[in-house]
Structure formats: C-alpha cells, structure tokens
Design a protein around this nucleic acid. Structure first.
Lengths: 123, 123
DNA sequence: GTACAAGTTGAAGCTAACTTGAAGTCAAGG
DNA sequence: CCTTGACTTCAAGTTAGCTTCAACTTGTAC
C-alpha cells in the first residue's frame, strides 16, 4: 500500500503516517522512491491508536513495540500511577475553581487585596 | 523593587518575572533602564499563581485581570466544565490501561493480531 | 579604578505530535 | 505531449511557558 492508502484506511493523514515512519513506529520499503506498506501496518496503527488513546506517548509506544521494555505490563502499571496523579491534580484544580466561585469579591483584583480569611483566592 | 527582589519574594525566577512583564501581566517602570516594580506586584503575582494553580493559562489570566472579560465568574464556570471534561478523559484513559492489564497477550504485538473478543486492546 | 553582581535586550531553545510549504519526481490518462 | 494527482525530501511553523545565551550596561564595594 502507498502512504495515501494507509492514511485512508487508518483514518490518519498521510503526513502523520510519514511522521510515524520517520520516528521508527512503522516500517516501509521504497519502491521507485515511494513508501510501500504491508498489510500489518494497519494492525500496527490500530495498536498505536489504542495506546495513544490510553495516553502513551509515541516514544513510549515505540519503545514498547521495539521490545526495549522487557515487560509492557510494567509500563502500563507506571502509566496507571501517572494517570492517578493527573486525576488528583485536575480534581484539585476543580476544587480551587469551585472555591473561587464562592469568593465574595466583585472584581478579581479585589481578591488580591483581601486577607486570607475573607478571600477564597488567597487560601 | 528590582526584578531580582520581586523574584526572591515571589519565589519565581527573574526570567519568569521579566516574561510576565513582557506579556502584559505585570507593569514596571524603567529607572536608568531597569525595571522598578511597586509593592502590589507581589499581590498580583500571588493572584496569578493562584489562578495558574487553578489551571488558568497566562493569557486567560491576563484577559481577566485586564477586565476584558466582563465577569470573571463566567470564565471560572467555563473552566469548571473544561476540568470536568479533562477528568472524564483521564478516567477513561485509566480504564483503558486497566483493561489493557487484563489482556492475556504475552507480547504486545500479539494483541494486534487477535480478534476483538480475545484481546483487550482491540475493544 | 577596578572587580563583581545584577541588570538590560533580543533571539533562540525546549517539549510533543504533527502540519504546512516549497520544490521536485513519477505514472497514468486524454 | 501535457496535465493531474499522488508521491518525495527537508525545513520550518504550531502550542505554552518559560529558560538560556550573548553581549553589553549599571551600581556598589573595596
């Protein structure tokens, strides 16, 4: 398949497919200078897409697929911890904004001049 | 105060303070070519820091402080929605990785070749 | 008068995952 | 023969929030 066919079947843009090949995520042979992909490139892209959706970076995916990581499950467990941290951080931001909405200040500048007791933003 | 003093008192680096001034978050007058900040720059930085912690971008903070947004509460409500979406997305990623850990495949490449029924990654 | 710390500007670098653009190649169809 | 469309490479642009660098100036201490 050419890059255009891979793009159509995978739903990616041709430029993205080329990019993936350039960073070593996909392999292609050159025929008259043009990339030729085999059928399993599609399966590989499905895999990559699933891993991306699960928040793995392309570099992490590349290393896992290359077998640099002895156990991909370890990478997954580490990723779970990362995601726990991310969720906690975002939840804290949510709480901070909620608190902000309970602030009695009329203008935001007012907050900066108030004491800790009075203003939500300064807590 | 000079930029160095503001940096020390705010806990930011001098380069960050200069950057903030360059994008219009802070104001400073020049005395012999050097930035001179007034006392309320510290309060403003406290405010900026709190807003950053609540996930507002510097540009959003700048607009809110400039009064371009008639009601900062509206911005906060919009931010809450954004954070809800972010939390949901991260939770979904967490679920995807958890599911992945339940996959029976020995190698990650194996996943790509299995049917939907068998392999977690393909669901 | 000189050494040194701290200031100045503007531009470039950093991260990730691509996209876009320029300039050129190549094969098929009319 | 010529056009069209799909491809090629390489470089640069995009996002945010700074940091770092180079080359220079200024203020203070000795």
């Amino acid at each position: 398949m050419t890059v255009g066919q891979v793009a159509k079947r995978s739903g990616l843009r041709a430029s993205a497919v080329r990019y993936y090949e350039s960073i070593g995520l996909l392999r292609a042979v050159r025929v008259h200078g043009r990339r030729q992909f085999t059928e399993d490139a599609i399966a590989r892209l499905t895999l990559i897409s699933a891993a991306k959706d699960a928040s793995f970076s392309l570099d992490e995916i590349r290393r896992i697929l290359a077998g640099d990581r002895p156990d991909w499950r370890q990478a997954a467990i580490a990723k779970l911890k990362e995601l726990d941290v991310a969720i906690a951080r975002t939840a804290a931001q949510h709480a901070a904004v909620s608190r902000l909405l309970g602030c009695p200040c009329q203008t935001i500048a007012e907050c900066a001049s108030k004491t800790r007791e009075l203003c939500s933003l300064n807590r």
